[in-house]
């Protein structure tokens, strides 16, 4: 079966997100005073073959720890679903 893993990687709380801070300032300059915080992350969409959904998740999690995420500075959230759903 073919699955799609949607991976959102962002900096941990407490790690300086200089891009987020700059965007926040710019939004304030434009008059969006209600904005409290901006964090910038990255989105990866991975298409993979797996026996079932839980296997696809395990494989994607292994990819995160082997390469995709640096757990010293980053956190992630992962959504796995069958492709085409």
């Amino acid at each position: 079966m073919r699955y799609r893993a949607s991976l959102l990687i962002y900096l941990k709380e407490g790690v300086l997100d200089i891009q987020g801070r700059t965007i926040l300032r710019s939004l304030h300059d434009l008059g969006y005073g209600e904005v409290q915080d901006v964090r910038v992350g990255k989105y990866l969409r991975i298409t993979l073959e797996a026996a079932d959904e839980s296997a696809a998740r395990r494989q994607a999690e292994a990819m995160c720890s082997d390469l995709l995420v640096n757990d010293l500075i980053e956190e992630y959230s992962l959504v796995v679903e069958e492709e085409g759903k």
């Binding site: 790690v15 300086l16 200089i18 891009q19 700059t22 640096n70 010293l72 500075i73």
Partner: peptide, 16 residues
Amino acid sequence: TEAKMLRGAFLPNRTL
């Protein structure tokens, strides 16, 4: 650092 031969990580310069 990415190879974990040294501890730590690098972020963009604070000046961007």
